[in-house]
Nucleic acid binder design. Structure first.
Ligand SMILES: [Mn+2]
Ligand SMILES: [Mn+2]
Ligand SMILES: [Zn+2]
Ligand SMILES: [Zn+2]
Lengths: 136, 136
DNA sequence: ACAAGAAATTAGAATAATTATAATATTAAA
DNA sequence: TTTAATATTATAATTATTCTAATTTCTTGT
């Protein structure tokens, strides 16, 4: 349970102006116990449902991208018609249920260490992600 | 170096009619030594370049999807504006160079075994893919 | 070889996610 | 309070992909 004030401070500290819209988006995204996987459309609808206030689709896109750049969200690579985002920005892995189109976290301790015995000269590793596709 | 005749037989055996367009697409996709990672647009342009014959974009989409369903191609999950496909349909992993927007195979022997110590009731594992993002 | 039916190709339209635009409103700082 | 910077918004533009429906090609049986 994070307070509105904390969101305002977090936004200010990130040089993002704490607008009503951004605070509402923070409430929906970060005021929860578990990690949250979502599409822009999911988020757009939840804002109306949970806060009762409408935020324009453009602002949802803008804010999600701003939060991505600040490192408060991350993008999950899956092939879907919509892009998936994650409030869990730590290095972790996923199940993707292809029937339900839902992402599920796999905790790091549930995956053995991943050893990559190959490297590309002049390039460094940015991230290592495992995606486990599930079906019925 | 695979011959045209072999492509024709392969198509017939898959109950896909060996049209001129499909054979050309086969030449571009499968007549190579190394694995080939591509987008629809890459392929569309290569067909013209390599065979001198034009194939409609709709047919490129249709054929890639047909080959996907037959298991001659696979889709690689990365977040990009375009979908990536792979002629290497074996279970394997990838580097994705985010600067050059290029996929590079990681051979299975270059990745230690991936142990997933979690399961979801009623769901079975369809695939396990590692994506290693690279940057300069 | 020919006819008939099935399947494939094609141009172009439709769809839908995302991004761009530019006018208006809000926020921060002086 | 004034002012400038920033944010929001409706709407238009862009673009990857899918759909449509007409035409063409392929296969099979005669
Ligand atoms: Mn898309
Ligand atoms: Mn995508
Ligand atoms: Zn996650
Ligand atoms: Zn590959």
């Amino acid at each position: 349970m994070t307070s509105k004030q904390e969101f305002i401070e977090k936004l200010r500290n990130s040089s993002l102006r704490p607008t009503k819209q951004r605070i509402n988006i923070c409430e929906v995204l970060f005021n929860r116990d578990k990690t949250f996987h979502f599409t822009i459309n999911d988020l757009f609808n939840l804002i109306k449902d949970k806060t009762g206030e409408k935020v324009s689709l453009a602002t949802v896109y803008n804010t999600v991208h701003a939060f991505l750049k600040k490192g408060y969200l991350k993008e999950i690579p899956i092939n879907s018609n919509q892009t998936y985002f994650d409030t869990n920005v730590t290095d972790h892995h996923h199940f993707f249920d292809v029937n339900e189109e839902k992402l599920i976290d796999i905790k790091n301790e549930d995956v053995g260490p991943i050893e990559i015995q190959k490297s590309i000269p002049g390039k460094k590793i940015k991230s290592v992600e495992v995606l486990v596709k599930l079906e019925d």
